[in-house]
Amino acid sequence: MNKVNEVTSIEQERQSRKEKLAGAFRLFSLFGFDEGNAGHITVKDPGFDDCFWVNPYNMHFSQIKVSDLVMVNHEGEVVDGNREVNKAGFTIHSQIHQARPDVVAAAHAHSVYGKSWSTLGRYLDPINQEACAFYNDHGLYSDYTGVVHQLDEGARIGKALGNNKACILQNHGLLTVGGSLEETVWWFVSMERSCQVQMLAESVGKPILIAEDHAKHTAAQVGSPEEAKRCFQPLWERIVNQQPDFLD
């Protein structure tokens, strides 16, 4: 591949990632994962390893378009865009992207059920097929000290995440990551619903856990990047058809 083709390929991938990112914010709003100015999703820039794209601060998820996205580097400097960046978002995501070079995208929001479940300081149990996607594949960060503005706390969150696809931030909410924006978004949607299901089940009784060997087998079936991408596709088609203006 010559240099011109390489540049074109990077630009095409950048545009694709930005479109998926803007669409992800619309989906999060559609599903009620927005609250005030809290929450952020990032995707690594394909041309610069030390930069990622993120939502502008204090802009409602339902209004975000591709043209509104901001690129920031690991020093917190805005490289592309003219809007302010959420300080907590930068603190968390910059440390995750540095700790996990394999992570292309990360998502955190103050969704109702994830936020509620996080107050228990517990891992999710394998009580149904979807929850098995997170079996032995999510961390727990139990050191809430307020809004995350210090880089060392962002680093501790990254450590709690480990090599997993998700992390429960105690008294705070959910965090998911993936090797693509598609994976990251689907894991967040699925984890939020898994929190909701377990809370509902425990409100009426004691859920029966799936046996360990079956939980591991199911995790391999529903917890792969390929399956996450397949599950994301209908969501993508829905938001493109319903709100195509985000592509501007």
Rank of each mutant, 00 (worst) to 15 (best):
F188R: 04
F33R: 02
Q129A: 05
N55Q: 07
Q15R: 15
H74T: 14
L140C: 10
G121K: 15
R193S: 05
R230S: 11
D50P: 04
N73R: 10
C167S: 07
D137F: 10
P225Q: 04
Y144Q: 14
M1N: 09
T176C: 12
G47I: 12
Q170C: 13
V147H: 00
V85H: 03
I239H: 04
L140M: 14
K206T: 15
A215Y: 12
G47T: 11
I168H: 13
E19A: 06
K115D: 08
N37D: 09
V54C: 01
V177G: 07
Q243T: 12
E130W: 08
N5C: 01
G173T: 04
A228F: 10
F61D: 00
F188V: 03
G179I: 09
R193L: 05
N128L: 03
E13P: 01
N58L: 10
I10S: 06
V104L: 14
S194F: 09
K65S: 15
F52G: 01
K44P: 01
L21K: 03
M199C: 02
I157K: 02
D34F: 11
L151Q: 13
K3P: 00
G179V: 07
V79K: 15
F246E: 04
D34K: 07
S180E: 09
K206D: 05
I157Y: 01
I92S: 03
N2K: 11
F246I: 07
H138K: 05
E202L: 09
D49A: 14
I10E: 12
L30W: 14
Y113E: 05
G114Q: 02
D34N: 10
N2A: 13
D213S: 09
M199V: 03
K18Y: 02
D102C: 06
E153C: 00
G146P: 05
N58W: 03
Q150D: 13
I168E: 08
A166M: 07
T218V: 11
V222D: 04
E75K: 10
L181V: 08
N136T: 12
R193E: 07
Q12P: 01
V204S: 09
Q243H: 10
H97Q: 11
A99D: 06
F33H: 04
K18N: 04
T91G: 01
K44D: 03
P234E: 04
S94K: 05
K3Q: 10
K20P: 00
A215T: 13
D248V: 14
E13W: 06
H214Q: 14
L161F: 01
V222C: 04
M59W: 02
I208E: 06
G121C: 10
A155H: 03
S111D: 02
G39C: 02
Q243G: 00
Q242R: 14
A99F: 03
S194M: 12
W53E: 06
P244H: 09
H217I: 07
H217Q: 11
G23Y: 08
N55F: 06
